[in-house]
Structures are given as C-alpha cells and as structure tokens.
Design a protein around this nucleic acid. Structure first.
Length: 507
RNA sequence: GAGGGCGUAGCUCAGUCGGUAGAGCAACGGCCUUUUAAGCCGUGGGUCCUGGGUUCGAGUCCCAGCGCCCUCACCA
C-alpha cells in the first residue's frame, strides 16, 4: 500500500535533513526544563511586552503543535507533558541551517529541542527566542487537526498516543487516575496495610461470580485461568499472618462490554484482620477523601448532570431501610414484595429472559425490586448494608439474625463502586457454601471447581476480618466526571481491524 | 442478543430531489521580522467502510456484511 501524500512529503523532508547532515531522529537532549517550570520561573523576570532578557538561557523540548513562519521569523508552539510554550526563531539569531530547518523542514508533530533566551513579544506572549534548534524526532505521520483535535472515538481508543498529545484534557484524566491510585495507596500504607501481588494465572479461579478467560501453559501443559478476583489468595495471606493486606489487582472477566464494564479492570481488594465491614466503610470513606484531596476540586463534584457530595461520613443505611424508603415495601412482607414486583413487570421480564422459567423465590423478587427502585436512586454516596442472606450465599450471617448477611455495597450515581464483607472464617461453613454454590452453576468448559487448598488454608486458621473490593476504574470515572469506563482506561479492548486479524492468523 | 445512530481527503465536517466529489485545517510551491487556529497568492490530494442489487446514472435508494457509539437486555 502506498503512503498517503503527506507521509511521502514528510519522508522527503527526512531525506533532506539527512542530506544536510542533520539526524532526523535525535539522541539525548539533556538539561531540559519542563515548559510549566519555564513559564513559572519567568514570572520573577517581570518581562514587559517586547522585552527580551539576554541572560536567561533555557533549554526546552517538545512536540511542535503550531507552526507560524513569518518571513525571516518562525513562531512555533511546542508542547511537553506539562504545558505549551511559544518558540520564536529569528533568521538573524540562528545558523542558516537552523533557520532552514525551522522554516522549511519542520512539520506539525515533529519533536524538537531548543536552546534560547526568554522574552515577551509585543503582544506579551512568553517566548523562548532560539539560539539553537535540534531535531529530536521527525514525525512521518501528520497529527490531527490543530483546532478540533482527534474526535473519532474509535480512533481515539485505537491510537490513544495521538489522543493524549492532541487532547490535553485526556492526559489530565489519566494524570488524575494516577494521583487517585497513589493517594489510596498512601492512605493504606499509612494505616499499616501491606501491598502484595498475587497470581494472575490461576489453575482454579474463584472469589467472584464471573466467567473467566482461559489460557494454557506450554511447558507444564496446564490449562489456566486469568483471575476474576484475587480474593482467595489474599485470604491465604491473612492465614499467613499478613493481617492488613491489599492489592491493586488487574482482573479479567469474560463478559459483556458497556460504559461500566471492560473485560479487564482494576479491582482494589483490602483485608483487615480482626475487623469487620464497619471498618471497611471507614476505610472506603478515608480512601476516597484522600483521593479527592489529592486531585483537588472539593468534595462536591459534578458528574454529568449530577452534583455528587463525597463529604464524609456518607449515608449508611440497611437494605431493608432503603427498600422501605424508595419502594415502600417491607423486606419481609412477602405478598407486598410480590405485588411490587408484579407492578414493575419483573416476572414478565424474567419469563422472557429465562430458558426454563422457575418461579422466583422471595429473595430474588426483593433483589429485583431493589435493583429497579432503589439502586438507580442512590445518587449521593451511600453504603447499603445487611443484605438478605440468600443473595450472598458465601457471606457470614448476622449473629442474631441468620436471614441477614454482613455485607455492604457502596453506590454513587446509581453505580456500584465498592463491595465489602465481614468475612467468613469457619472452614466447614465456607466449604459447604462453596460446594452449594458450585453445584448450582451451569456446567460448561470453564466450570469453577472447589479450591481445596483454600479450604485447607482456612483450616490452619484465618483471623476474623473485614474485606473490601473497590472498582478503581468506576471510582476514577466518578471523580473525573467521565461518562464511560473506556475514558479512564488507556487502552480499552477494541475489536481488531480485519487487517490486524490476518496478521495474527499468518503468524 | 434487540433497537437506534454513525462510517466521505491525514484530521474536523458539508454533500439538497439520484445527475461531473466539496469546505476548513493539514500538505506542497511562492511572499512576508512580532505571529497567536498568523496572513496573502498558487497547486496537489478520494477504495465516499466492504460486497451485491435497483437505475441510463448511486456518496445518496434497497439487501447483506464489517467497525464504532448510544439505549435496553444478559452478566455481578
């Protein structure tokens, strides 16, 4: 396939540079100052418009975003990871080669290094007046349009590198993502939590209800799963005496993709020995507060049309209270729940979806009513605790009420961002629960099996503990006002284009 | 899985009733010493997502497919 005309033009310039003995792909360019630093430090110079400070040598580097040749002057705007800054290059002040390069051989998207002095133009624009110019990288692909940037959503994800250097607000979201994760990590370390890495490749998967990805190890001739959760390994570490443990776990779930689900995502899991789910609520609030303090913008934040208020403490309510409040029914009033479900058309919907329809029991109906009437209205950060036990078969029951599970979920903007339990540590009960759950699962090629080593670990003794999972991507969405999970994941999964598919097949 | 929308130059987008494929930016050549999405003069650039069909004639209408987005469903 022949190159587009603009790529050909740029390759011609590449050859012209080489003919001038100029390396189009440069090397080390030491001692550069970030553009934001240059801008900040220029304040103290109090430069007047038109003024030029001869004794202020700076070295900067960046990508050419705008290029304005103007006779015997060339103005450029370059961008680095911190800021944009204008470069001015006068024919009288640089070598003839440098002027030719700047005037004729540079294109938008090239990366250059500049040494020069600081000044302001007549209109007051801070400018590095170049004394020398170094080509650091000639770009052969043209960047997107300078005003609108890269808009095509598909291309933005497939070529995130272009998205990042053309759309600064995208870079800002990922910078905030990094700061959020760092703030959470520090918050946990400060509380004596211990960060670990547990296996991604697992011979037996567990810890959540989700379909896994499968893979294979050649040397061991072993089928493996990509983890759907780190839970069973982190609990082994509780047995091992790591009493406060966490992992930022990349997990993989072989399920649908939408604005809140990506096949791989980051799940923070935390376990605290001798604690329970109340401790996990405190930690959730503390982590989110630390994250917000780091990225700034305050506890009251815009999310789409909504204004969210993350000021701790968040509302803590029981499942039953919220059901009463939003659906107007008593959780234990079976006829009332059934009537409500009927009103909502839940049964009809379930009949339409199910292959073999089984009359749902009370807990299922409660759950349907909750999902339809309560969850979408949990806009402000809310902890929902004490779930109906049948909905959480693996969870410890409330000591004085076996119908209640010691679990909470945190919702923001109607979206689940955290899930926590007072963990079960009786190996016999845990094993029974696991077996019962597995028996109820549909048989297929990726069927879950009982992790007997996990049960063995519990038999050695796991301290009572609180456990928490936080959907980091969703939390980042909320805090950065991003509508789609793909906007907070650098390289979300996209179906490859046909040509790429062929390449894979031919290998 | 169902419904809806989108796919045209490197990028952002127009394209009327079916009648020779358009603009801005970018690119190329020229002019210009204070520009700010610089300006002026000139030039080149198209698998109109793919494949069929209807038609004298299809970017436009029909069918099928591919990719992406949205809503719903599924999935915790």
């Amino acid at each position: 396939m022949t190159d587009p005309q603009q790529v050909q033009d740029r390759k011609i310039k590449l050859d012209k540079l080489r003919a001038m003995n100029v390396a189009p792909y440069g090397h080390r360019f030491p001692n550069v100052q970030p553009l934001a630093t240059v801008r900040a430090s220029s304040e103290s110079l109090n430069l007047e418009p038109g003024q030029h400070a001869e004794n202020t040598t700076v070295r900067v580097a960046g990508r050419v975003m705008l290029h304005r040749p103007c006779g015997k002057l060339v103005f450029m705007t370059i961008r680095d990871g911190t800021d944009d800054l204008q470069i001015g290059l006068s024919k009288a002040a640089v070598s003839p080669e440098a002027f030719t390069i700047a005037n004729k051989l540079l294109n938008l998207g090239d990366i250059i290094g500049v040494e020069g002095t600081l000044g302001r133009t007549r209109t007051g624009e801070l400018t590095v007046w170049a004394t020398s110019l170094t080509v650091l990288c000639k770009a052969v692909q043209p960047p997107p349009e300078k005003w609108h940037g890269l808009k095509d959503v598909d291309l933005r994800y497939r070529r995130r590198y272009v998205d990042l250097f053309t759309n600064p607000q995208v870079r800002e979201v990922f910078k905030q993502r990094s700061m959020i994760i760092d703030a959470i990590r520090r918050c946990l370390v400060e509380r004596s939590f211990f960060e670990v890495d547990t296996p991604v490749l697992q011979p037996i998967y567990g810890g959540a209800a989700a379909r896994p990805f499968t893979t294979h190890h050649n040397a061991l001739d072993l089928n493996l799963f990509l983890r759907i959760s780190p839970e069973l390994y982190l609990k082994r570490l509780l047995v091992g005496g790591i009493e406060r443990v966490f992992e930022f776990a990349r997990v993989f779930r072989n399920e649908g993709i939408d604005t809140q689900h990506n096949p791989e995502f980051t799940l923070l899991e935390i376990y605290q020995a001798y604690g329970d789910y109340h401790d996990m609520m405190d930690i959730t609030e503390a982590m989110v507060a630390a994250a917000i303090e780091r990225i700034g913008g305050g506890f009251k934040r815009q999310f789409g049309e909504l204004e969210l208020d993350f000021t701790p403490p968040w509302r803590r309510a029981t499942y039953a209270e919220l059901l009463k409040e939003y659906a107007g029914v008593d959780m234990n009033d079976e006829p009332a729940v059934a009537r409500k479900a009927e009103e909502l058309g839940v049964l009809a919907k379930m009949k339409a979806a199910a292959t073999e329809f089984v009359v749902p029991d009370h807990a299922i109906l409660v759950n349907e009513v909750f999902d339809a009437m309560v969850q979408p209205r949990l806009i402000q950060p809310t902890f929902v605790r004490d779930y109906p036990a049948p909905l959480c078969p693996l969870t410890r029951r409330k000591p004085d009420d076996p119908n209640i599970a010691l679990r909470f979920e945190a919702f923001v903007a109607g979206c689940e961002i955290a899930n926590a339990y007072t963990e079960l540590n009786d190996p016999r009960v845990q094993e029974e629960n696991l077996r019962r759950t597995l028996a109820g699962e549909r048989r297929d090629e990726t069927m879950a099996v009982l992790d007997e080593d996990f049960v063995l670990a519990l038999e050695y003794g796991m301290p009572p503990a609180g456990g928490l999972g936080v959907g980091i991507d969703r939390l980042v969405m909320m805090l950065t006002n991003s509508a789609s999970i793909r906007d907070v994941i650098l390289f979300p999964l996209q179906r490859p284009k046909a040509a790429i598919d062929e390449d894979v097949d031919s290998v």
